[in-house]
Design a protein around this nucleic acid. Sequence first.
DNA 1: GTTTCGATGAAAAAAGTTATCATAACTACT
DNA 2: AGTAGTTATGATAACTTTTTTCATCGAAAC
Lengths: 159, 159
Amino acid sequence: MTLDILRRELKKRGQRITYQRELILKIFMESENAHFGAEEIYRLLLEKRSRISKATVYRTLALLADFGILNKIEFGDGIVRYELASFDGKSHNHLICKICGKVVEFESDKLDELMETISKETGYRIENYQVKFYGICPDCFKKILRNDDNQKIASESVK
Amino acid sequence: MTLDILRRELKKRGQRITYQRELILKIFMESENAHFGAEEIYRLLLEKRSRISKATVYRTLALLADFGILNKIEFGDGIVRYELASFDGKSHNHLICKICGKVVEFESDKLDELMETISKETGYRIENYQVKFYGICPDCFKKILRNDDNQKIASESVK
DNA sequence: GTTTCGATGAAAAAAGTTATCATAACTACT
DNA sequence: AGTAGTTATGATAACTTTTTTCATCGAAAC
């Protein structure tokens, strides 16, 4: 269980097991595959009637990432997010819609192979990777097509 | 030439060709494979005796990224960087050292294949991707080995 | 040359994150 | 259990990066 990993790592470093640290980790454990920013975690805690200082939220997220329990991810909207690192060590890959910002995850063995190849070619000890594909999701694509039609109709009726 | 692309795109949108926009693009064209943040661009402009407002730097970087002339990249240090998008449409992939922050680029056909596959599987129109491999570069790895040796020697001499 | 409207510069504001410091509370030791 | 010794927390200030505002400037069209 991930909470035990946290406790073990804290003891190893002579740091303390606190209510706040466990609570923030639980937020991630309760919603698999979620990517939360500091602000969002703060809000979720308030909704649970847990008043935890924002400073502690930031500190704890950095700590959990340092332990390798969370992974830091940035989708390019200026917000730093974190997600639960998976047990099997597989990295999460994200498919991001440029229009609505929706994020979908996917897995691929090809990436693990590529990691091996590049590691050998460059001499880097690669530990993990992050892949982001940017594009337009099916829903937004439909909307764009519809708008184009409407504009065509509108410009025709003007004539 | 990339400057022509900028001019063409600006005209297409009814926006203006300005000294500032061309100058900022030139900075990227003069140093291939560089990744600059807004602050860095501002400094480089000052060194060239070109006083351009920071607001314009931010606006222009966003504009060039919107045109697809620049790609936005984040290495996880809190600074948003941009790099010149390549002509052939190939995305740049980065190998980042966790210790010293050194960034190396690499290319791979496998990623283009993967992009195709995922695009078909998910229905997303994928336009570009960004791959970051995190690890330890050969230099830093050597240093770690050396330090471990020193510590072993030190602890032995304490006994 | 004049007009028009988008772009720029300077500064203020906003957003996100980190640092400071007094107080609270975890842990080890008796 | 009680206590001492530190680390963690909370509240706020400070900082950093980015965006907004608005008066002025200048590119493009006529």
